[in-house]
């Protein structure tokens, strides 16, 4: 079931479009990654969905809500660089925003306490936010975005600015949250998207250029790739490998021969046969699955 249906959404800043004619749907209960390079229009899209920006044209429809109703109670939003009231403590901030979302005082206190524990800030609950580290602020940001239990949680680059430990914490948290709500998060780090998302939206120059579940996209952009390592000059073997019938393309990158092939089984046979009969000094042979990065590069280029 589609929770959000976006149709022909456009946003122009001083006539240059940040997002143009974008349409997509968010399926209820899924974790969707919005992927794209910097400047692709991810933040603008999220801000329009959250109501912070008004679309130049197009519609955003939330399931079961009329066009003009206040959707803010049903969404949670974490900006890329969340800024808090520095003079508040983490707990005070959570209680404050949940009171703004019309929760009763005891309920607000209860949820703030639970959430602070869940995001690992229980010990810092009564410290001023000005003393928080970047990772702590990000986790507090996620907590404030979900404290009123929205149907849709939107996170703008939730892990991009974090160190490896903070990144791991947040990704684990998102993995848990997937059970309770629909999540839409943007990232330009493809590995993060690969890790937690069920579906991806690829965005490039203001347009969604590809979308679907990870499995579907893998299938669609399935290119088998083999990486070969040799002792000696790679260029001597590049020609020989390229000459094999099942090989589409072959290039050298960082002392590794990257071979794109049509049919993995046939190609593996060809290469290994040639290698053994001609006694190639192979040092490594690795089969690669299509990574998100490959898909992305392909989709952008096509």
């Amino acid at each position: 079931m589609a929770l959000v249906t976006v149709e022909k959404l456009s946003k122009k800043y001083d006539s240059s479009p940040a997002v143009s004619q974008t349409s997509f749907q968010l399926t209820s209960g899924k974790c969707v990654a919005l992927i794209g390079p910097n400047g692709a229009g991810k933040t603008t899209t999220l801000r329009m969905l959250s109501g912070l920006l008004k679309p130049t044209s197009g519609t955003i429809a939330f399931a079961g809500m009329s066009q003009n109703s206040d959707i803010r109670n049903s969404i949670g939003y974490l900006p890329q660089h969340p800024v808090f009231f520095k003079w508040m403590t983490g707990k005070e901030f959570l209680v404050y925003v949940s009171r703004l979302a019309y929760l009763s005082k005891p309920e607000a206190l209860r949820r703030a306490k639970n959430l602070l524990e869940r995001v690992g800030l229980a010990e810092s609950a009564n410290r001023r936010i000005s003393k928080y580290s970047g990772g702590m602020k990000q986790r507090l940001g996620i907590a404030q975005a979900m404290i009123h239990q929205p149907m849709l949680l939107m996170l703008d680059e939730p892990v991009s600015s974090l160190d490896p430990i903070g990144r791991r914490d947040v990704l684990t948290l998102m993995e848990e949250l997937k059970e309770d709500m629909t999540i839409l998060f943007s990232t330009h780090i493809l590995g993060d998207a690969d890790e937690v998302s069920d579906e991806v939206l690829l965005m490039h120059e203001g347009k969604i250029i590809e979308s679907g579940s990870m499995g579907e996209l893998r299938q669609k952009y399935q290119t088998a790739k083999i990486k070969l390592g040799f002792d000696g000059d790679l260029r001597d073997y590049q020609e020989k490998v390229t000459a094999l019938p099942t090989v589409i393309e072959c290039y050298i990158q960082r002392d590794v021969l990257h071979v794109t092939v049509q049919n993995m089984t046939a190609a593996r046979h060809d290469i290994l046969t040639a290698a053994s009969s001609e006694e190639w000094p192979l040092t490594s042979f690795a089969v690669n699955r299509a990574s998100l990065e490959d898909m992305f590069m392909k989709a952008v280029n096509s």
Partner: peptide, 13 residues
């Protein structure tokens, strides 16, 4: 200017 209103005003205020 600081951006804190982005957090506050996406709540149903």
């Amino acid at each position: 200017k600081s951006g804190v209103s982005e957090l506050i005003l996406v709540k149903p205020v």
